[in-house]
Design a protein around this nucleic acid. Structure first.
Length: 584
RNA sequence: GCGCCCGUAGCUCAGUCGGAUAGAGCACAGGAUUCCUAAUCCUGGGGUCGCAGGUUCGAAUCCUGCCGGGCGCACCA
């Protein structure tokens, strides 16, 4: 039980007793009562607004009520000081013994510290990346990949059964363009000059080997054939090659999806038809004409009857087309069928991680999930804003048309997977992110990964050192957790224990909010507190972690170090970053 | 024109479901190393939380309207 839950439990007990004493007409509503760390630490370790909330409900004076609560909470063993402040806050300061016991808990839990059973084994589906198989991943995909992956990791730690999924858009006009682009490369491999690539073709070099391979295996049999004869085969070859490329990139970023789901299969298995006829039966599909969008010009707009989904019934702004004018299903139609398939596979909780350019698509998909599940399923879409690539502060121009975007591959090769993953979480996902190549390549202090890694390396170095300095000492989990933790009396040490004991709460709230960036901010805080204590040893030798003639004190301080290492390495592993034991 | 996201220190950004005196990094100025890793630490200046109203014990946070920026806007994905 984390510190907040612990105090909340006691608080609610007291409220219950009070409510009964007041021959309580009705149960108080506890839902907006918070137990949290106050922003200003002079207000104590924990604070609660309970008195103000309850005072409102019972029409009493919040300060009086706070006083009563405060007196009762003061009686708890773990509470050192309880006082009323401001308009009716109850501020608590917990005992040093309590924080030490939390450190001990941490050490015994080891790498499982912070895990929870909150999810109760509920299945949850996280779909992320899902980039079109028309080329390698670029750095923007990398952001979605990391965000999705870390959300999945966090939810696993919360006790959910997580399935990581990638939806392959291997159908539609973009895939046809891919097939034609591959055909050009095939022609070139057969010695035919194709000087200018037509508009809408994929110009990247990465299709050259695909064309070459087809030239080798197929010879000239398709050179003069009509496109209908080779289109499917070339599309399939292109997709397959691109997915191999993409999976390699993801693999090197430490990402492995459980399921790759093909849009083409959705269609071929009749799932689209099935889904749409289901919706049609329920009166959610009709033939209609949409108004032209206002305020922007569409050259070729004409009123046209379309097959429309009643998305407006589920909170969208417009009803949405399911069929193109050529009779093909729209992307949306397939996507509905796909999400319905997820629902049928047992997922009532779904998370999709999309790029910023799909922001306008969120409402309709949420609406569709609502519709296909009859309100039984919930889709949460996380949008990742753009990544601006900089080199030494100067923006790198990216043009997808010209094929010269910064690939994820380049970035991984240059700065490494760990740096990429960490940097991607240094901003909220819905805010744009600057990725400065120079800063993260230099391995300078501009690189936030290093700050945290350095703290970890320093801690490891201490444990190595301790073995040399005190060879007779056993230093293992048992020895550390049962060491004389009451020797830890410095305010900074208590503060650090406090920060470490917040980890389960940080992880839980980050997981539930699906905001993985909170992890990097927290780890920075841990590292900062640790670096601070370290440096005090420069001035006062008595404050160092290892003091040769004080083995018991040293062991207690090493326990704190071990706590730092456990939390940092645990946090980094959720982020997908390998903690380093030594910096070179 | 409509929808979504954003606007917080010179710069880049945190800020939990509405909490008290709004925080961090960078930059800037000064200081700390014979000693556990100075890739670190300490001290300092820095703010009309875009603007204006509203809701209430209390608003950076919620509501409305404006201003500014990003993304998107039938038959692409």
């Amino acid at each position: 039980m984390n510190v907040f839950q612990h105090i909340r439990t006691h608080l609610f007990e007291q409220i219950e007793i009070l409510s009964n004493e007041g021959n309580g007409k009705k149960k108080p509503d506890l839902s907006s009562i918070r137990v949290e760390a106050p922003r200003n630490s002079s207000h104590g370790d924990l604070t609660t607004n309970a008195a103000m909330i309850l005072a409102k409900q019972t029409n009493t004076n919040p300060v009086d009520l706070a006083r009563v609560l405060s007196e009762r909470l003061a009686l708890l063993d773990d509470v050192a000081l309880s006082e009323v402040a401001g308009p009716g806050f109850v501020n608590l300061r917990l005992t040093s013994e309590y924080w030490r016991s939390q450190l001990s808990t941490l050490l015994l839990a080891g790498s499982s510290y912070g895990e929870s059973t909150l999810g109760e084994g509920l299945s949850i589906n996280v779909e992320y990346v899902s980039a079109n198989p028309t080329g390698p991943l670029h750095i923007g995909h990398g952001r979605g990949a990391v965000v999705g992956d870390v959300i999945a990791n966090m939810l696993e730690k919360m006790g959910y059964r997580v399935t990581r999924e990638y939806y392959i858009n291997d159908s539609g006009v973009q895939i046809e363009a891919l097939a034609r682009s591959v055909f050009v490369r095939y022609q070139q491999a057969m010695g035919i000059e194709v000087s200018v690539l037509p508009d809408g073709f994929y110009p990247g070099e990465y299709l050259v080997p695909v064309g070459q391979q087809l030239a080798n295996s197929e010879g000239d049999r398709w050179l003069l054939a009509p496109d209908v004869d080779w289109l499917d085969q070339f599309a399939a070859a292109g997709c397959k090659a691109m997915m191999t490329l993409i999976k390699n990139d993801l693999n090197d970023l430490g990402i492995r999806h459980n399921i790759f789901f093909s849009e083409k299969d959705v269609h071929q298995n009749g799932k689209t038809e099935e889904t749409l006829s289901d919706l049609r039966l329920r009166g959610l599909i009709y033939e209609g004409v949409l108004d032209p969008p206002k305020g922007i010009k569409l050259e070729d707009w004409e009123p046209r009857p379309q097959t429309l989904f009643r998305a407006t019934k589920f909170g969208d702004d417009l009803d949405r087309p399911l069929k193109k004018s050529n009779g093909d299903w729209t992307y949306f139609a397939a996507d509905i069928a796909y999400h319905r398939d997820k629902f049928e596979r047992g997922f009532s909780k779904m998370i999709d991680v999309w790029g910023a350019d799909h922001g306008g698509y969120v409402k309709r998909m949420v609406a569709a999930v609502d519709a296909i599940s009859n309100g039984q399923a919930n889709l949460d879409v996380r949008i990742c804003q753009l990544v601006n690539v900089l080199k030494g502060g100067v923006a790198v121009k990216m043009s997808k048309r010209a094929g010269d975007f910064v690939t994820l591959r380049e970035v991984i090769d240059q700065v490494g997977k760990d740096v990429v993953r960490y940097i991607m979480l240094t901003r909220r996902n819905d805010a744009p992110l600057d990725f400065d190549f120079a800063a993260v390549t230099e391995q300078s202090r501009d690189n936030p990964v290093f700050y945290v890694q350095y703290a970890h390396a320093r801690g490891c170095s201490l444990l190595r050192r301790a073995i040399q300095v005190m060879p007779n000492m056993t230093i293992n989990t048992h020895a550390l957790s049962s060491s004389e933790l009451d020797r830890l009396i410095e305010p900074e040490e208590i503060e650090l224990m406090k920060i470490l004991s917040f980890w389960p709460n940080v992880l839980e709230s980050a997981a539930l909010a699906k905001e993985p960036h909170r992890l990097t901010y927290y780890l920075h805080e841990v590292a900062s507190a640790f670096h601070g204590i370290w440096s005090r040893g420069d001035k006062h030798a008595s404050l160092r972690f290892i003091i040769a003639n004080e083995p018991e004190l040293s062991l207690a301080r090493l326990a704190l170090v071990k706590g730092v290492l456990t939390v940092i390495s645990g946090g980094l592993s959720i982020i997908g970053v390998q903690p380093v034991e030594e910096l070179k």
